[in-house]
Amino acid sequence: MLDLPLLIGQVFNGFSVASLVVLAALGLALSFGLMRVINMAHGEMLMLGGYLAYLTFLVVPGPLALLVAMPVAFVGAAAVGAVIEVSVIHRLSSRPLDTLLATWGTSLILQQGARDVFGPIGVSVTAPDWLNHSFAIASGPLAGLSLPATRLFILLVAVVVLAALGLFIAKSRIGLLVRAVNQDRMMAAASGINVRQVDLAVFCLGSGIAGLAGVVLALLGPVTPSVGQSYIVPAFLVVILGGLGSMVGTTIAALILGLVSALSQIFLDVSMSQVLVLVFVIVFLQFRPQGVIAVRSRALEE
């Protein structure tokens, strides 16, 4: 007989894992869809967001630190993203394999940089009081279920970011340009759209969202120089599973992966559950190689 509170608790954990992974993966999906680049240094944007949160918590005391840290991390990661795009990715745009290598190098440089500045041991932030509790259910059929406020907050951040991004892409003038460039780069340029600017803006946006994810990450555990590495692999999996560049697909794939991982942990230990997730992705792609949502984009047609 399955324990209902345990099941609900794991479903909730699945959603919260999915929230983090989707925040980490959106930037990868956006820039792959648009530019066909794979940015190996994307995980370091999470790391950067985490450290920026740590610094903000040192400077800004009190319960508002978290709310200040989020825009700081977004802007900081977006700015570093801009530097990487202009100095590395744009220069290698016609050589995808070299981009892979160069951004991997960038990732190592950023990790070592963090190690030099902050030391190899992780730093942590203390979640503000308003997040430092759990919603526990004491009676009824769900007695024993406990939902930590930090995890609810993560879920909320992911929902807000997804909704805002969705609205931005669907309704704003810049969103229209992004969709045009994403679908037909040649025609977008011939219609007067500066595709170069759109590339850069989207890359910065993706990096900024990863920075936000870093803040959220800092609430869950220590920020270390290599913290990005543990999230970049699931993020890549989610992007591939989602259909390479589709936002909706990436979100659905993150949910699937989060739930598979969390629910399997009811029966399996953590490492076996990771094996199961990988096997699941491989089997899924055997039957549906185009991913959850098939995207027709310039990147995949060429």
Binding site: L176, L177, R179, Q183, M186, M187, S191
Partner: peptide, 18 residues
């Protein structure tokens, strides 16, 4: 080379970039 995922109005609006 119509932007097939966009509405007619959005297609026309993309041309305003020029």
């Amino acid at each position: 080379h119509i932007f097939s995922h966009m509405t007619v109005e959005e297609n026309l609006a993309s041309g305003l970039s020029a």
